[in-house]
Structure formats: structure tokens, C-alpha cells
Amino acid sequence: MNPAAAAKLGHWHARLDAWQGGDTLLLRSPAQAWCDRRAAGRLAVLGYHGVEDPSTFEAHLDLLQRRFVPVSLERVEEAAHGGWALPARSVLVTFDDGDHSVHTHALPLLAARGIPAVCFVIPGLVGTDAPFWWDEAEHLVRHSGTTHRVPPNQPDITVHTLKLLSERERQLALAELRATATAPCSRQRQLTTAQLRELEKNGVVVGNHTLTHPCLDRCDDDQVRREVLEAHERLTELTGRPPTSFAYPNGNVDERAHRFLTQAGYRSGFLYNHRLADPGACHPLRIDRLVVSSRTSVDRLETILSGLRPALFRAGRRAARAVARASQPLSSKS
């Protein structure tokens, strides 16, 4: 499948999965009850980004306190390395990118309940007002930005397609979008060093999410080394301690990154594959995570935590790929 078709497929499936109309029915179904019992022995690692809806996020935390056992990164890493098993219905809360709302909205709600969490930070942005590159790209496309490196498309599909380019091509494409757009992207408030230390002081561990957030499998060897190890050094300086946990940007695993993470003493690495985890049975640098948003309804969150919604997601993705393959011209299948 070519990059444009793959991006459209991802966009279509994301829109389908965003529909929450059937979640109440799923929650009351026999399948939910069966999945919920089966999931009791697995770890649910929730992968948030920002906290766009604090009231719904607060309802999420209340659910976790009521029906699950929030655990710390340290306990998960211990289990991943053959130590004490985690209690039934364990949940680890994580955030990717280091959005400022993790400090302003998530931290007070987590601290009030004593729920530990992990925030995977992009240290190249700490202390700046630079926007996340994917937000900037979407803005530039909406304001007539163009690049010959990807086909013209809807802004969110363009961002998906940019992630399929090599890192060098992605940077060149972003430069072209900046040069042709009618309006630059507004600046974005990023976390400061003081805020990182406040997160850590109050139970939110800071982890490594690469220096600038490229897709590592699209990088050359030097870029992978720099993104992992320079980020590690920068975070050590910013927080006063070396990070032990890593989250792969976009969930894209890379064996070269594994080597650098092992070299730097990392004890855990997290995917973004919408699966329940079993830390004692997987590689410590490949722990599964569930995809969730602060806008996710509580009903849907329960079906995610049981594994039912992720199973339906994977089935839908397989069906969409089968349809896409069947619709390709014969010449492209040969």
C-alpha cells in the first residue's frame, strides 16, 4: 500500500473508532463481562497525551480508584524484570509529549488521589514556546501550505503521511510548508524545568520521548543515536536524575533504539499499540499500551480497560486493510 493510501486508511479507521455511540451497549454486553474477567490478570497502561477535558479525566481517575489498582512505574519495571507480580487489575497512567496541561490539569487531580503516573517528555521543547511539529504541520496545511513531497490532502491526513517519510524528507517537507503557508503557526506554551521537577516531586515520573519526536524507524543511525541519547542527557540535566523509561514516538519500535536504551540503563520501554500488557511475559522495552484520550467517555474507558474495545479496533483495522487490498488495481498487487 502506498503512503497516501496507508494514511487515508489510518484516518478512516481513527474516525470510525472515534464514534462512541455504541459504547453503552458494549459495556452492558456479555462480551464486556467476559473480557473484563479475562483482563483482571493483565496490566492496563493508559496512554494519554494532553488533558483537553479535565472533568472527564477526573471521572477517569475516579473509575480507576473505584475499580482498579493504580501502580507506579517502579512497580511495573520490577514486574517486567522478574520481580514481584502486579496485583489484579493494575493500571499505570502515562502521558506522551509533555503537553503543558499535564502540569496544569493532570497533576492536581492525580496528586489529590495519590495516583502515580509517567510523563514522557520531548526535552528539545522544554522551556520553549515552539509548537509540536504535527500541530504546526496541520495548521500550515489549513493555511495553504504545500509541499511536493506528499500529495495534497486533508490536514490530518497530511500529518499521517509526513510520518511515513524519512526523517530528512519530513524536515524538508515541513520547511516547504512553512515557506508557502499564508500564516505561521501560533506559539505553544511548553513545560519548564521547574515544572518537570514539580511533576517528579508529586508522583509523576519524567520519561524519555526522544529529543524532537521523529518516528525512529524513519531515521538514519546517527539520528536514532542523537534522538535517544541526547534526550537522555538533557533530561538527566533537567530533572537531576537519569530517566529509566522510554516511549517510542508514534509507537514505532526500532531495534537500534533498543541498543541505545540498553546502553543507557533503561528498564522499560512503552509501545502505543492499543493492547493490554503482561510485563512478566514481554521484553521490558516493549510493554503494550492502550490508546486513550481525556475526551474518552467513561463507558468507553471501561471497554478499553477490559480489552473489548481494543479487540474490536484490531478487527476493524484488519477488515479495512482487506477492503483496501481488494480495491487496489491488479497491476499494483503484482
Rank of each mutant, 00 (worst) to 15 (best):
Q328W: 05
P242D: 04
Q32D: 14
A311V: 02
V93H: 06
T94D: 15
C185F: 07
I122P: 03
A130L: 10
V71Q: 06
G203R: 07
V121F: 01
A183K: 12
R149T: 07
C119M: 04
H274S: 03
S268F: 03
G316S: 04
T158D: 12
A281N: 12
V93Q: 07
F132M: 13
H103F: 15
R318Q: 00
T303L: 04
F95C: 13
G207V: 00
F68N: 07
L16K: 05
A44H: 09
E167M: 09
L43R: 00
L140R: 03
V51W: 07
A59I: 02
R170H: 12
H139T: 03
R189T: 15
R225E: 13
R38P: 04
A175Q: 09
E198C: 13
F270E: 08
P152H: 01
A324T: 05
A5V: 06
P70C: 06
T158E: 14
R28Y: 14
S332T: 12
T94Q: 15
Q188T: 14
A79R: 09
L165M: 10
E302K: 10
V205T: 14
E58P: 04
L26C: 10
Q154F: 08
N252V: 12
V69E: 14
H232N: 03
T210D: 02
S327E: 03
L177K: 12
A59N: 09
A179I: 05
H283M: 06
T182M: 10
P310C: 01
V205A: 13
A80H: 04
C219E: 05
L174K: 14
Q223M: 09
L177N: 11
D254G: 06
D135N: 12
H105V: 03
A322S: 06
P123V: 00
E136A: 02
Q20L: 15
R267N: 10
E237C: 03
R234K: 05
E200M: 12
H139R: 01
S334A: 06
H13I: 11
D99S: 04
T161S: 13
R286P: 09
L140W: 02
L92G: 10
H274L: 00
G50W: 05
L196N: 13
E77S: 05
N252G: 14
L61E: 11
I115Y: 08
D96A: 06
P30Q: 14
P214T: 07
D97M: 08
R42A: 08
L164R: 07
G127Y: 03
A31E: 15
L177H: 11
L261C: 02
T180F: 10
Q65W: 13
S29P: 07
R187I: 03
L301F: 08
H209T: 01
A173R: 13
G10N: 05
D96I: 04
N2K: 08
R113Q: 12
T239M: 01
V102N: 13
A40W: 02
D129M: 10
G114Y: 02
N250G: 09
A137Q: 03
P30F: 14
W19L: 09
G307R: 00
A31G: 11
P123D: 00
A277S: 11
S166G: 14
D288G: 02
A257C: 07
H209S: 01
L216N: 01
C219W: 05
R321N: 05
S72R: 12
S72K: 11
V121N: 01
L199C: 04
E136V: 02
L165P: 12
H232T: 02
P329K: 07
E302C: 09
Q65E: 15
